[in-house]
């Protein structure tokens, strides 16, 4: 389905249908965690979620119409932000806890067992707490998550016709998801004057999600380099993409 033919209501319905399933860790390590066992649980979960994330992106109307190059660039740029946004949504009703999965809920203090992770847990808890204050709604969350994907990378300019066509489609898609979010807010029943303030409040939080993901990426890379945890498969590919870009 092309987004050009979709109104905001239909677009948001597609986002609801695109939602990935809740991923279970299945093999919860015994407590207390060690640095290695916690990192192993978190990376195992991330690897499983990444596979579903690709399925989710493909179901966003218009995403597969972008060039394969753009699809890859967007996903490799945003994957940790998208994982973190999902984590925040799952944790929104549980102050002080991070619900990584239905079978992996961590208290803030459990982060103390992994060097450097407490700072990231605190960033995630603070942003989640702000979403809670704003009473983030499920459909707003879906629009924000799609925005993270579509706004994740500023591409270099290409002369190739195919690529400029793809970036035109991408800008159109971003406008569609923005219209979707505006539509969701307008249907929430808040007074018209407060709607633009709410939109701004929600969008401002995305810079905090991006900041947390940079910190998370640095942390995961250092854990991998110190051999605290082995990183395999899709997660390794996605992590390497960031490493190569920084180099």
């Amino acid at each position: 389905v092309l987004p050009a033919s979709l109104g905001p209501e239909q677009f948001v319905l597609c986002l609801i249908e695109a939602e990935p399933p809740n991923v279970l860790l299945m093999s919860r390590p015994s407590k207390p965690f060690t640095e290695a066992s916690m990192m192993m649980s978190l990376t195992k979960l991330a690897d499983k979620e990444l596979v579903h994330m690709i399925g989710w992106a493909k179901k966003i109307p218009g995403f597969v119409e972008l060039s394969l190059y753009d699809q890859v660039r967007l996903l490799e740029s945003c994957w940790l932000e998208v994982l973190m946004m999902g984590l925040m949504w799952r944790s929104i009703d549980y102050p002080g806890k991070l619900i990584f999965a239905p079978d992996l809920a961590l208290d803030r203090d459990e982060g103390k067992c992994v060097e450097g992770i407490l700072e990231i847990f605190d960033m995630l808890l603070a942003t989640t707490s702000r979403f809670r204050e704003l009473k983030l709604q499920h459909r707003e969350y879906l629009c924000l998550k799609a925005m993270i994907l579509l706004n994740s990378s500023m591409f270099p300019f290409f002369n190739a016709v195919e690529e400029s066509d793809s970036s035109r489609k991408l800008h159109h898609l971003l406008n569609t998801v923005t219209d979707g979010l505006i539509w969701v807010i307008s249907k929430s029943g808040i007074p018209f004057r407060q709607q633009s303030t709410r939109l701004a409040n929600l969008l401002m939080l995305l810079s905090h999600v991006r900041h947390a993901s940079y910190k998370g990426m640095e942390h995961l890379l250092s854990m991998k380099c110190k051999n605290v945890v082995p990183v395999y498969d899709l997660l390794l590919e996605m992590l390497n993409a960031h490493t190569l870009r920084e180099q």
Binding site: H52, Y69, L234, E237, M238, N240
Partner: peptide
Amino acid sequence: SSLTERHKILHRLLQEGSPSDIS
């Protein structure tokens, strides 16, 4: 390295079937 080289799994998942087919 090219995008294809560094994203073998991602490319496959983008071009092939649903996640349930892969896992």
